[in-house]
């Protein structure tokens, strides 16, 4: 009982310590050996940025500007979750962290993308449209405009036990604004049967991952 209490207290303290550290002004963007705490010696630290947004409490270390979630499912028992966190990315801009977790998936590498429509109709999930790519010059074709879409993400690696996780960042999307996931028809995250080689190909070639084996509507 005492030990459990100590661990809980330690965890609480840890959280407080890292949040306080992360909120210290002028600490933006410095790395720390995989730990949550800043380490000014981990990489060549530039002078503390004089960012007016920091003074306003925007764009400050640890700030969360939005979050979203998707429950992923596929016709062959695949399940999973995707969590999206909009965090500061220098200047007055943001980036999105994507944390993906899959179970009951085929082992190996699988293409992962944000698709243009927040609609997942099994089994083929074609209702989710092409790869998310807003803007006047955008083109959602998964083959011909790959890997230039705003919704393109790295592959996920699934182990022999059918489970896989991925923790990546993208500066191509946000929750709102011109590159926002929550446009009029929403967005979905799709897991493909094959790996994404990160190159384009002819229309219909399925170069970026082929059949869709899992889909999740992205919700606030």
């Amino acid at each position: 009982m005492y030990r459990a209490g100590l661990i809980a207290a330690a965890a609480a303290c840890c959280l407080a310590v890292t949040i306080v550290a992360a909120q210290a002004p002028g600490r933006q963007g410095r790395g720390g050996a995989g730990a949550g705490a800043p380490n000014p010696n981990a990489s060549p630290a530039p002078p503390a940025p004089a960012d007016p947004n920091q003074m306003q409490g925007q764009g400050r270390g640890g700030a969360l500007f939005g979050k979203a979630h998707a429950n992923i499912a596929g016709p062959n028992g695949l399940t999973g979750t995707a969590d999206f966190y909009e965090i500061a990315n220098g200047g007055n801009s943001h980036m999105v962290q994507v944390i993906l977790s899959l179970q009951n998936a085929p082992p190996g590498l699988h293409g992962v993308h944000i698709h243009a429509v927040g609609k997942c109709e099994a089994p083929a999930f074609t209702s989710a449209g092409g790869h998310f790519d807003p803007g006047p010059a955008g083109d959602t074709n998964p083959d011909t405009n790959h890997p230039f879409h705003m919704g393109d993400l790295p592959n996920i690696t699934v182990g022999a036990n059918g489970a896989g996780t991925m923790n990546v960042y993208t500066t191509r999307v946000t929750m709102g604004g011109p590159t926002g996931l929550f446009d009029t028809d929403g967005s979905a995250i799709i897991i493909h049967a094959n790996l994404d080689p990160g190159v384009g190909g002819p229309a219909g070639s399925g170069i970026s991952g082929g059949p869709r084996i899992g889909c999740g509507v992205i919700e606030r």
Binding site: I19, G31, A37
Partner: peptide, 20 residues
Amino acid sequence: QGRGGGGQGAGAPGPGGAGG
């Protein structure tokens, strides 16, 4: 090498729990 903006990390566990 643990590079990058760790200073922005709140250290809060993700949805995977303490190990996530």
